[in-house]
Simulated assay, not measured.
Amino acid sequence: MDLTPYVDNLRHELAIAADAGGEEARALAERLTAPLESATRLTLLNALSAAMGEVTRELAPGSVDVRLRGLDPEFVVTPPPAPEPFQEAQAPVTAPVASAPLQAVPEADDGAMARINFRLPAHLKARAESAATAEGLSVNAWLVRAVSTALDGREQLNPPGRGKDSGGRGFTGWVR
């Protein structure tokens, strides 16, 4: 973005205002405009940076950055990542997998779905994609199954009626 037209416009407006004050004011305005050019450019750059900060907050997780190239700012727009298109689960690959056995993902009673943002480190994302591909599933279907398996496994480890809040006839403490 070329700031020169904006700086020139400010110089022109200052000259028009100085004309009203006479010849001395016009001469003073001419002497002041050259040193004020860098201050004007810096002020415009600060205003643009603040504006792009507000735009970035509205675009999150996308962003707009202002970079200085020579004397002029340049805008770098990073759009938010496009959501992956919904893919139906493909037929599972018949090759055996060393991980947990395949289990059907129980559907919700009312069929309602919830959407969440899930951030993974890059190395885990790559492993999840590889595992999903090996099992012939989309990453989403694989993650749903993994979460379901993890939660079902936890319920089996902690059956109802056991534990300190179960109201059952259990004892806690030390024994000699």
Rank of each mutant, 00 (worst) to 15 (best):
S63V: 03
G153Q: 00
A104F: 06
P160C: 14
F75H: 08
T78V: 12
F75Q: 13
R115E: 10
P106M: 07
L120Y: 14
L157T: 11
E84N: 05
A126K: 11
T94S: 05
I116W: 05
R57H: 05
L151S: 07
Q156C: 11
L71G: 02
A128T: 12
V55I: 13
V76F: 04
W142A: 01
A112G: 10
D110K: 01
A100E: 08
R67W: 07
A98N: 08
A91R: 13
A112R: 14
P80S: 02
A141C: 02
E74G: 08
P61D: 00
L71D: 05
V55C: 04
E155M: 14
V144W: 03
A128R: 08
E155V: 13
L137R: 05
V77K: 03
F86W: 10
P106S: 06
V139T: 15
A122N: 10
E84K: 03
P96N: 14
K125N: 13
S166A: 15
S99G: 08
L124M: 15
F75I: 14
A104T: 15
A150V: 15
L151C: 06
L151T: 06
T133M: 09
R127K: 09
A141M: 09
T56A: 11
K125V: 13
N140V: 02
L157V: 11
P73C: 01
A146E: 01
R127F: 05
A122P: 12
A131N: 11
T133D: 15
N158V: 06
P79D: 02
G161M: 05
V55D: 01
P96I: 11
V77W: 08
Q156H: 15
